[in-house]
Design a protein around this nucleic acid. Structure first.
Length: 290
DNA sequence: ATGGCAGATGTTATCTGA
């Protein structure tokens, strides 16, 4: 017996009906998987917002950035109570990344981006989950630019690009997602002329992102919404969210055999309107027939 | 062009973010 899932409202209905199960399955076959990324800007301060969003959005896999919590202060009990297994790499005050899964526990592959033993920032964690290799990343901001922080950003980008090439060649189904701190094109930034000298938009930064894409990766949001203004970040100043003065800096990069299963994607922009919210909104994709 | 806001640390402010 088979069931064809062609319409997303049907998928959503089945997903709600399957509450309590780790993955939506039918005759033991995975029909649908939702994967999200969310820069929470402080996982403990953001906990009520994070838990509310998890309950409403019900992603199967979640990548978090900017935990801003040491390893021992990760709110594991609350995350588990919400139905998720988790691995994370914390750091006092800043950075910090995590991978959550409603299905099998994420099997950690690495928690450091290769290439610089002296880089102690918690900005990368990678795991195998549900047959996917998930790289969760928080690329350095790089401001002020030029300067040592910008140099660090570009070096980190080079390490990511080198590692991404190996992942792409591995033949695994790979997703590299997180806060890239890059607006890839002028379409991805409100008033681009004001950002040309910023570390998130400088020519070197955009060139690094495009060089990464040239390995074959698909920018999932841009593929599904070509030409549309879509933002994932609005700063806390000057009513940026109310004016939709945002940036698109949180991205999903998919290897070719993940891209072929891409059904839909979106930004949970409404979360940015909640009280005590992050300056980023969650971004998600949905894959069919893994 | 500037400074505005927010989180963490742990002070009566500093650092960082984007």
């Amino acid at each position: 017996m088979t069931m064809q899932l062609s319409l997303n409202p049907l998928v959503r209905e089945l997903h709600v009906c399957s509450k309590g199960f780790n993955l939506l399955t039918f005759t033991n076959k995975i029909l649908y998987m939702k994967i999200a990324t969310y820069n929470v800007n402080g996982v403990n301060g953001r906990l009520p917002v994070l838990l509310r969003w998890l309950q409403e959005s019900m992603p199967d896999i979640v990548c978090l950035q900017e935990l801003k919590a040491p390893q021992e202060k990760f709110p594991l009990q609350d995350i588990e109570n919400a139905g998720y297994k988790a691995i994370w790499h914390g750091q006092k005050s800043w950075n910090g990344v995590a991978i959550l899964s409603r299905g099998e526990a994420p099997q950690e592959i690495r928690r450091v981006l290769p290439g610089d033993p002296e880089d102690l920032h918690s900005r990368y964690i990678e795991a195998k989950v549900n047959g996917l290799t998930i790289g969760c990343l928080y690329l350095p901001n790089g401001n002020p630019a030029p300067g040592p922080k910008f140099d660090y950003k570009l070096r980190w980008f080079e390490r990511l690009t080198k590692h991404a090439a190996e992942l792409y060649r591995s033949g695994e189904r790979v997703i590299l997602t997180g806060d890239y701190n890059v607006m890839p094109t002028e379409l991805d930034v409100y008033k681009p002329e004001r950002w040309v000298d910023d570390a998130l938009f400088r020519p070197e930064t955009r060139a690094a992102f495009h060089k990464l894409l040239e390995q074959g990766w698909t920018d999932a949001i841009r593929k599904l919404y070509p030409g549309e203004v879509i933002y994932t970040f609005w700063d806390y100043f000057r009513n940026a969210y109310g004016r939709n003065a945002g940036l698109r800096i949180d991205h999903f990069l998919l290897s070719a055999d993940v891209d072929k299963d891409l059904v839909i994607a979106g930004v949970d922009k409404f979360v940015r309107g909640w009280e005590k919210t992050s300056d980023h909104a969650p971004v998600w994709i949905e894959l069919k027939d893994a």
